[in-house]
């Protein structure tokens, strides 16, 4: 491209062409982060459920939930490091900024919620269920919002499912209904399948088709 003066028509065409070029494109592996968190949460959920069943409901098994933070966090850092080159090859859009702030806020809220729950646990109060409800609601809210932002229906629907499930579990807790392992753990796993695993695969498939 040279230092050429344009007429009005050419100018408008150039603007349209450039805007079209910078339109947000999906990239290969777009859904990998969702898949990582989704599979980690579902597998850890399964591990906790099996441990609780095998130990006759030993509450200490609930500490295994922290594997989600450890495994998920390490995987996320590795993926972000691998993704660094993308900053140079792709523009950082407003959608990227909103998405990053959204998940940043959700991450902090979940971290604070977890710390508060641990504080209560230290004083002998059983707050594991609070963390469970938090997981349902925050993951559901985050996925739904991101789904609206990037216009991905599977994320909106999956997130909405987790929000409804989280609200249901919360109502059960408030109404004094006993949360049994046989339905809470499968519900937790199902939520992460529909909020993260399915949308992650959908995004990857769409990216593969587009690229």
């Amino acid at each position: 491209m040279e230092e050429k003066r344009l007429n009005s028509q050419e100018s408008l065409e150039l603007i349209a062409r450039m805007i079209n070029k910078t339109k947000r494109q999906l990239h290969i592996g777009q859904g990998n982060l969702l898949l990582w968190w989704g599979y980690t949460s579902a597998i850890v959920g399964l591990l906790v459920g099996v441990s609780l069943l095998l130990t006759g409901g030993n509450k200490a098994c609930n500490w295994l939930w922290f594997l989600i933070w450890i495994v998920g966090g390490i995987g996320m850092m590795v993926m972000k490091r691998k993704d660094k080159d993308r900053i140079e090859k792709e523009p950082f859009t407003y959608v990227d900024r909103i998405t990053s702030n959204l998940w940043g806020t959700i991450g902090w809220m979940f971290a604070l919620g977890t710390l508060m729950s641990i504080g209560f646990l230290c004083f002998g109060k059983d707050t594991w269920v609070v963390m469970l409800v938090f997981a349902f609601l925050l993951a559901g809210f985050g996925c739904s919002m991101q789904g609206f932002i990037i216009q991905e229906k599977s994320m909106v629907v999956g997130g909405a499912f987790a929000l409804v499930a989280g609200t249901f579990v919360l109502c059960c807790v408030l109404a004094g209904v006993k949360l049994a392992i046989w339905w809470v753990i499968p519900l937790f796993i199902l939520c992460f399948i529909v909020t993260m695993i399915i949308p992650g695969h959908v995004l990857n498939a769409k990216a593969k088709k587009q690229c």
Partner: peptide, 17 residues
């Protein structure tokens, strides 16, 4: 009103950086 500068501005209008 120059081809390259307009192209740069059009790209930057559409993204944050």
């Amino acid at each position: 009103h120059s081809q390259l500068r307009l192209a740069i501005m059009s790209i930057l209008m559409n993204c944050e950086e």
